[in-house]
Design a protein around this nucleic acid. Structure first.
Lengths: 131, 131
DNA sequence: ATAATTGCAAATTTTTTGCAGGTTC
DNA sequence: GAACCTGCAAAAAATTTGCAATTAT
């Protein structure tokens, strides 16, 4: 909890109970969309409004606290900002696992005439459980 | 034009003028969202409705004619279905270029305990013009 | 004390749906 | 001619906005 407060303050955002609670919800889930954040935070703070979540999703992205993970055919999910990584997405159970982008992979992504700044890699398939 | 007719029929869809015209618009643009398709097709077929575009975007995805390209912070774009490739996205001008995923890259994406089916790779940076 | 944030309700935007008439095969 | 598709208008869903009251620093 104190972690989230620090995280917010370090990124020039006031540490409100709504914000720490949204961050906790995202952190717990790993990757979660707006509606599921709402369902989750309401348990503890029943008056926390969806509008507040929308407003904060925007401002927390601007201030580099969270990152959008756009999804095919469904609403975007959000994750806490962390080191660069890729997503292993299970097409059966939907679980999203974060995995390091190896330096070997990075080397192969150096393209002529393109000045790379960041990358987004999603791998779809079956996780260990679902195989 | 006859290309799009064949493409549709090969994928069990009736070849209506609305569909060929939507496909032409996507093909021309490379990557385009629903609103921009609408603006474009209206030039030739002013009565073509946004509802028809939405309905066809869904059915054409189901029938493997087009593919969704989800975007951060904006509406999804769509492209014609083609061989696997990655996207080089210019953060300055927004241009999206398709590039082959080399076998070298693919080799590095073989992960233990994950049965890979497909991958989605977006590289963000500056295109040649914008550097 | 000040400036920012919240929750509510209302507005706006986006997407989906139902159905009568028209089109494709 | 049967099944499917379209356009319209209406409905539903998703997101944004304005503002008075509250809260963080």
């Amino acid at each position: 909890m104190t972690n989230y407060i620090t995280l917010l303050k370090d990124n020039d955002l006031k540490a409100t109970i709504q914000r720490t609670s949204i961050l906790q919800s995202i952190d717990k889930a790993g990757h979660i969309n707006v509606d599921d954040i709402y369902e989750d935070v309401k348990k503890q703070y029943p008056t926390l409004s969806l509008a507040t979540i929308y407003k904060n999703i925007i401002v927390m992205q601007e201030n580099n606290v969270i990152v959008e993970v756009p999804m095919n055919g469904e609403k975007s999910k959000y994750e806490l900002k962390k080191e660069e990584h890729m997503h292993l997405i299970c097409e059966n159970c939907g679980y999203i696992m974060d995995t390091e982008i190896t330096s070997k992979t990075k080397e192969t992504l150096i393209i002529e005439n393109f000045q790379l700044q960041s990358s987004q890699i999603n791998l779809f398939g079956l996780c260990q459980k679902c195989q």
